[in-house]
């Protein structure tokens, strides 16, 4: 069975091309989803890629969450559809309240593109089960508004298993608790600030250690 993974293109999505490439590389079939689509074409999982949806005008992800395709994705995600938001996709998932917290300007107020290390804190989710808990991987951070923030109560709640990944070896953007990614309680919706899709081979990325995000969801879907 071929697993079909939808990659949404909003106006201003940029890493959609890369996300589709990563899906292909992991052995699944990428399906192009358009922001104006009123259905999900029967995909088994969805990726909201990086970029500047709608120019990031108003606030990152604030307009994208109202796109027609999101009104399909939001209820499907609540029913258990695996959804991965990368960078701008993470911002959209927060704006859509599928994930807690928000992303704000980097502490240094500059865009930063850096090869960084993150530690996988929760290896139980639909997108991380091929990793070992505590495994450190090298991926790419590239964002101007990547500092994760949430109120104290939310942060305390997240510590009970919803922190997906943390920056190690320095906090590159001022994220609370060094948070690089979070998951919802059910473990099917995951938001990640760094880009695993830019780390799928050592030729075009700093490592191939991001590929297991995509392989993980393949296993989950195949087992379902």
């Amino acid at each position: 069975m071929t697993v079909r993974i939808g990659v949404v293109t909003f106006p201003g999505s940029l890493d959609d091309h890369d996300a589709r490439r990563a899906v292909r590389c992991a052995g699944a079939e990428p399906v192009e989803l358009w922001h104006g689509d009123s259905g999900l074409h029967g995909v088994d999982a969805v990726i909201l890629p990086g970029g500047f949806s709608y120019g990031d005008y108003l606030r990152c992800g604030a307009i994208a969450r109202f796109a027609p395709v999101m009104s399909e994705i939001i209820p499907a995600a609540r029913r258990g559809l695996p959804v991965l938001g990368i960078c701008n996709g993470f911002q959209i998932l927060c704006e859509a309240h599928l994930l807690p917290g928000a992303l704000t300007r980097n502490r240094a107020l500059r865009f930063v593109n850096r090869d960084i290390q993150v530690r996988i804190e929760n290896a139980e989710t639909a997108w991380t089960r091929r990793y070992r808990g505590g495994q450190e991987i090298t991926v790419v951070l590239k964002s101007g508004e990547g500092a994760y923030v949430a109120d104290q109560e939310t942060l305390a709640r997240l510590e009970a298993g919803q922190v997906l990944a943390r920056y190690v070896g320095g906090n590159p953007n001022g994220s609370a608790l060094n948070i690089a990614g979070v998951t919802n309680e059910a473990g099917n919706v995951v938001g990640l600030m760094p880009h695993p899709e830019h780390a799928i081979d050592a030729l075009t990325g700093p490592s191939d250690q991001g590929l297991d995000f995509f392989r993980s969801v393949l296993e989950v879907v195949a087992a379902a």
């Binding site: 890493d15 890369d18 865009f111 593109n113 590239k142 075009t204």
Partner: peptide
Amino acid sequence: EQYDRYVRGATVLAMPHDAGLLQ
């Protein structure tokens, strides 16, 4: 590091190497 060097997945070499190289 203020520039995105990875988007489009074809960057084989970039700064600080001698030349940029694209697949």
